[in-house]
Amino acid sequence: MMNRREFCKKAMIVVGGIALPLTALEVFNPKSLQAEKEGTGKVRWAFLVDTQKCVGCGFCVKACKIENEIPYDANVTRTWVERYVVTRDGTTHIDSPKGARDGFTTMKIDQNKEGLLDISSTDIEKAFFVPKLCNQCDNPPCVQVCPVGATYQTGDGVVLVDRNWCIGCGYCIMGCPYSVRFFHPVYHVAEKCNFCYHRISQGMKTACVDACPFGARRIGNLRDPDDPVTKIIMTERVNVLKEEYGTKPQVFYLGFSKEVK
C-alpha cells in the first residue's frame, strides 16, 4: 500500500519527466553559443542618420508608408521625423505632426490638444530634425518578451514580425524603449520598421534612403569593412539612442544633441 507522501513523490517524478522537453537534454557547445551571440553571416545591416542634413521634408515617411502598405491616413508609421526646437529660456519643444508625413511647413509647434505654439525666430536657440526608425538592436527587448516566437531576429540582424504567428498581445509594443512598434490597423498584429527587408535582400536601398534627397539616411553592412557607411560608423563621432538600456541599437546618429530622446 502506497502512502500519500510516496504517491505525491512518484506523481511529481512522472509529470516532471513528461514535461521535460528534449531540448533540455541538449549539451551546449560554447563555441556555437558564441557564434550565435556574435553572428557568423556576411551581412549585418546598420543604419546611419545625419541629423545635420535632415531638413524635415518628410519624403522618407511618405515613401515608407506607401512602400510598406501602412494605411496612409492612419496615424501610425514605421518611421517618423521629430523636430526639436530649443528656445532661449532652455525649454525643448518636440513635435512630429502625422509623423512628419507631410513635412514641416510652418514654425508652429504641434502640442496636440494644447494647440499650436508659435515660436518667433528670435527666441530659437537651436532647432533641428531627428529621423527615427527601428534600431534593429543587437539585444532586442521586443523579441525577448514575445511569448509565441512571432517576432525574431534574422541572421543579418533585422527584427521581423511573423503576421501569421503574432497573437496581438502587445508585449513587444510596450517592451520597445524607442516606441517604434504599433498595431497594424488592417492586420491587427504588431508592426515595425524592418529596413524594407524585401528591398535590401535584393540589393536595393530602403524606401526612405532612396526618397531622402539630402543623404541624411544611409544603410550599410557592418560586416563589410569597405562599406562607406561602416567606415563612417567606425571612424567618426556617432551616437545611438538610449544606450543606457543595453539594447545595442544599430541605428547610428551623426550630429547628435543632448536634447534628443
Binding site: 553559443l33 550565435e36 551571440k37 553572428g39 557568423t40 553571416g41 510598406n68 502598405e69 532586442p140 523579441v143 525577448q144 516566437g149 512571432a150 517576432t151 525574431y152 531576429q153 534574422t154 541572421g155 521581423l160 511573423d162 503576421r163 501569421n164 504567428w165 524592418n194 527587408y197 524585401h198 535582400s201 535584393q202
Partner: peptide, 21 residues
Amino acid sequence: HERGYMYGWHRKSNEAEWKAV
C-alpha cells in the same frame, strides 16, 4: 535559427514571406 534560442526562435519560412513584398 541563426540568432539562437533567445532571438532566433521563429518560423523560418516567414523570412521569405517578407522578402516577397
